[in-house]
Simulated scan of single mutants.
Amino acid sequence: MQNFWPSSGFDQLRRNARGWLVPTDDYLRLFLARPELALVPESCDAERALHAALVLQPSRAVTPREQGALADADARANYALFLRFRDALLSAGTLEGYYLSLFRRGHVDIPPLFVDLLAQAIVRNVLDDSTDVYELRAGEMLFRAQRISTQGGQILAADRDVVDLLSETGGLGEIGRLLTQANAPMRALEMAVLAEHNAPRYWQDGERHRFLLDLTHEVRNDLSHGLTLTMTRARSGLGALARVLERWIAHFLGVAVHIRPEPRIDDPAWRWHVGLDTEATALLNDLYEGNAVEAERQQRLLSLFRLDFADPQEMRADVAGKPVYLGLATSADQGVKLKPQNLLVNLPLGAARPQ
């Protein structure tokens, strides 16, 4: 197997006996190299000294006096955020333990960027033995926002940041940005739909996030005599996402579940649901409570999923053996930002399981 997502920091981390990721100095150094903390020509002497000291020993204590000596207010704020993140991560002992603690206590006190960086490293760990690039591309959805489009009957997910950048620059960087502002014609740089013929390229190009994931789960063929044949696609992006979410749950909670995409919920005994994003959470809540849902909101529902526990005894007694329904929806601007933490804090686990 080849390496993927080298910027995730997975190579700078180590696993404990449980398979969870233990932070190291090399992992913390990756944060010090990020634009938010990297030195710039305007950095003052105090900032240069603090940065050098942390690069040498990332876990060293930093005094309030050292922080207060930084001339730039933004630099002081950035270092304060990093040090709070670092200290909490080291105290938790693992990335997974810290990630869980952020959401179980209901108070996330670090920037969304740090949450996504944690998730990226953890998903990289979860998928370390995967050889399926469709799973890897689906795994990106757990830490990178997507934009959804429909082309020729296909539902396609594209990396939001890459789409926005290409729309601004045409793939030509700052020069492209200037040409766009001048309304000059530019060479269009297309993003490729992940398919069998280009799948091997993912191992080298996946971190550029320029592969579209086809989320079309079923294909309908109209036959003669008014008959319609519906077939499930073997390379469904939703199927790949379901497998990633199964692994995610098993890695954190130690429970085996089976997740499959569903076209609808036809269950008069519907008891439990979890939204995979903010929009889906609100939509499922309204549907469950019998509230009216506008047609436009319903059309933004990308997919439903059915989650079943392999062992119903691992569920809460009052819902044991019943399915859990999941939803995935877009925002009004066709964006999707998964919240994989919802599956860790909102599943109906029994008292004997991790809470």
Rank of each mutant, 00 (worst) to 15 (best):
13 L>C: 04
37 L>T: 04
257 V>I: 02
240 A>Q: 07
122 I>M: 06
214 D>S: 09
110 I>R: 11
85 F>T: 02
328 L>I: 07
308 D>I: 04
18 R>V: 02
278 T>E: 14
168 E>Q: 15
221 N>G: 05
163 V>P: 03
53 A>N: 04
220 R>F: 08
73 A>E: 15
18 R>C: 01
132 D>L: 10
293 V>C: 03
120 Q>I: 00
4 F>W: 15
173 G>A: 07
63 T>E: 11
56 L>N: 12
154 Q>N: 13
334 Q>W: 06
128 D>H: 14
69 A>W: 02
243 R>T: 14
128 D>S: 12
76 R>A: 02
23 P>L: 08
80 A>Y: 07
117 L>G: 01
143 F>R: 02
319 V>E: 09
297 R>Y: 04
34 R>T: 11
353 R>L: 15
213 L>D: 08
19 G>D: 07
268 P>R: 07
13 L>E: 07
327 G>P: 00
294 E>A: 15
286 D>W: 05
303 S>P: 06
43 S>I: 03
246 E>D: 10
64 P>S: 10
284 L>T: 07
159 D>H: 08
280 A>I: 10
45 D>L: 13
172 L>V: 00
301 L>P: 12
81 L>A: 15
304 L>N: 06
240 A>I: 04
139 G>S: 09
20 W>M: 12
58 P>C: 05
124 R>T: 15
292 A>D: 10
281 T>I: 00
328 L>V: 07
211 F>T: 00
144 R>L: 13
98 Y>I: 00
342 N>Y: 08
215 L>P: 10
116 D>R: 15
146 Q>I: 01
